[in-house]
């Protein structure tokens, strides 16, 4: 039996004339890793801040395990832990002191001694916040979001500033949270992260949910199952390529010609290119990815 952890229903929030979020609705099942993806300024952070009770929507309604975050912030803080972008701590507080202080806020905190090792800060426990690197501050911030053993963990830009190894460690941590029944809301614009971790993803664009599906579902629904790309030395007629059967999109991207389309379009495209007397270089044919699906949904008209 699944239980709904987070319900967002018709959320709208504007700042002055600017509508940040409009008619955003989705629900997150307990124990799910739910991704919120979108370009900068799309309304991702506003949405999670409304869920965390930091912003009150103009209209709409949010429930987190039945709690209204806009009226019962105290109740909310006991079930939801959030790692905020750019929020810092007192300059001279040590890692250990921060975790001890945060532990004291909760009735049944997660043992911080274990958590500190889990985020790889064990050997830095007596270091002051201001002396930590950006990645270490980020990992401490994640640990503080989790020390209250929240039922819902909101991680905003989880892996910003982390090196590749630390990213993978945080990914393992997120999966482990899910395996222990914690619901995770992951705000990100790292496609690989979203594709690897999330059970479902909401793609937010211009303050609205543009698509909501599993990563596989999003990729399948994309116009491109395969992506063919290559370089050419001379001018090429992109319009002619676009008219080939099965081709969904043709664009010129960082010096490469990129053709997206259904299976089999690759050969047709390459034949056409060679017919025009041009030899494609650095040829690559890959499966469509979440990137493609994401770009489909969030990019304006392709060139």
């Amino acid at each position: 039996m699944t239980q709904t952890a987070v319900v967002v229903d018709g959320l709208r929030k504007s700042y002055g004339d600017k509508v940040a979020v409009d008619e955003v609705s989705f629900s997150v099942e307990a124990g799910e890793i739910f991704g919120i993806l979108g370009p900068n300024g799309a309304g991702k952070t506003t949405t999670v801040e409304a869920i965390a009770g930091l912003r009150v929507g103009d209209t709409g309604r949010i429930r987190v395990h039945g709690i209204d975050p806009w009226t019962d912030r105290d109740g909310l803080t006991r079930v939801l832990g959030i790692q905020l972008q750019e929020a810092q701590l007192q300059e001279k507080i040590t890692v250990r002191e921060a975790l001890e202080l945060w532990s004291s806020f909760y009735d049944t905190p997660r043992p911080w001694q274990e958590l500190i090792e889990r985020v790889g800060l064990g050997e830095h426990r007596d270091r002051r916040f201001g002396k930590l690197s950006g990645g270490q501050q980020q990992r401490l911030s994640i640990a503080l979001a989790l020390v209250g053993a929240p039922q819902v963990a909101v991680l905003d830009e989880l892996s910003t500033g982390l090196d590749p190894r630390a990213r993978r460690e945080m990914w393992d941590l997120v999966r482990e949270l899910r395996d222990n029944g914690t619901t995770v809301l992951l705000v990100t614009h790292a496609m690989d992260e979203a594709q690897l971790l999330c059970d479902r993803i909401a793609i937010v664009k211009d303050g609205r949910v543009a698509a909501l599906d599993t990563p596989d579902g999003l990729i399948r629904s994309a116009t491109a199952a395969t992506v063919t790309s290559f370089r050419v030395d001379s001018a090429i007629d992109l319009v002619a390529l676009r008219e080939l059967p099965g081709v969904a999109d043709v664009r010129s991207d960082a010096g490469r010609v990129v053709v997206e389309g259904s299976e089999g379009t690759s050969l047709a495209v390459l034949d056409r290119v060679r017919d025009s007397g041009i030899t494609p270089r650095d040829l690559r044919v890959v499966d469509g990815s979440l990137d493609t699906a994401y770009l489909d949904l969030t990019t304006e008209e392709s060139a």
Partner: peptide
Amino acid sequence: IGYRQRRVLRRLQTTPLG
């Protein structure tokens, strides 16, 4: 003022301490 600037106060708004 430093705590507000560094968003320490905002961070604490999401905890039972407040």
